[in-house]
Nucleic acid binder design. Sequence first.
DNA 1: CCAGTTGCCTAGGAGGTCTAGGCAAGGTTA
DNA 2: TAACCTTGCCTAGACCTCCTAGGCAACTGG
Lengths: 197, 197
Amino acid sequence: MRVARAGLTADRLTRAAAELADEVGFENVTVSALARRFGVKDASLYSHVSSARELRTRVALLALAELADEVAAALAGRAGRDALVAFADAYRDYARAHPGRYAAARLPLDPADLAASASARHSEMTRAVLRGYRLTGDAQTDAVRLLHSAFHGYVSLEASGGFGHQPRTAEESWSGVLDALDAALRNWPSPGGVREA
Amino acid sequence: MRVARAGLTADRLTRAAAELADEVGFENVTVSALARRFGVKDASLYSHVSSARELRTRVALLALAELADEVAAALAGRAGRDALVAFADAYRDYARAHPGRYAAARLPLDPADLAASASARHSEMTRAVLRGYRLTGDAQTDAVRLLHSAFHGYVSLEASGGFGHQPRTAEESWSGVLDALDAALRNWPSPGGVREA
DNA sequence: CCAGTTGCCTAGGAGGTCTAGGCAAGGTTA
DNA sequence: TAACCTTGCCTAGACCTCCTAGGCAACTGG
């Protein structure tokens, strides 16, 4: 009786799950919901992905790769402060355009998936940005971590409404924060702290 | 036949759910799991909390209040850089000691719950820290947001293994990051950017 | 001491995850 | 062309979580 097949593949499922995540939130990405979207029974998906967990992991890996691509494109041909701002804006723009995917990118991955992910590219690109600031060794590592933390923290708080409806918009603060980070990178303190005013 | 009652109340359920969150992860805090822990049927919990959602919200509010208490205690009698480090350490220590509660604190709350939460205290305390740095107006707001972002981002990346097993530990980088934030607060750039070296 | 309230119960439906096994369409090989 | 095998989706069903409705028994207070 059944005529047309839906034409499912692991890749199509992953992409559809990513769209679903952006529409209804990553936590609502479910095997049943995805099957419904394709007009098939949920058991049918298990030939392509082995579990709901694997489906979500695939979305996470897709998001990490997409994000790395966006950032890489934004970074091309820029250096110093321009590179910092381009990186930051690309990062934040991706998170706002694709909230579900971005949430997926924060899924804790087991080491095997992590190694296969684009997260190494993220660190590399952050280090590339820092080449404009003459930071090396431990200071560079710490700066990479500060930038990751600040970017991720900012978009994550912004997404969860942490900045409220105050007069100063999240948009305005963003450039202030980037200015401060740029200044921090240019004046990176030597270990032990700098005590003078 | 049943003799002893479990003695459930909304408060006991909330505290037990918080412990459960720290043990098995916030995403696994479930009405059934909690009922199992008390040796009662899951339906019994619905006299005390109206839904799984409410249970999780209660844990979130508990965590926000506890975190505010810890930070307030750490902040007492300190100013300037000492206050910054005390705030940051209290924040990070809480997140590491209570990963499930901390995850709960990041649950998106609806405005009503948010207003009743301790998150206003968080902003207030951050502003208190900044009094040692002579920041006012928009710069102060931006600095509050940078600190929140950096702290939250750092502990969140640390918790999800984002810092890998690199030679430089998360512990070591933390003090480097705090030094940099301290420097950024002391040298907060004026709007428009500072271009000199 | 009896009435009302409270605390936990049983029963059951809806929806999500996942396994086992089946059948039929399409491509492969003789 | 026929037999075969693989692939794609199916049904059936077990198990879990969430939540509602309704019930009984044990406390509590007038």
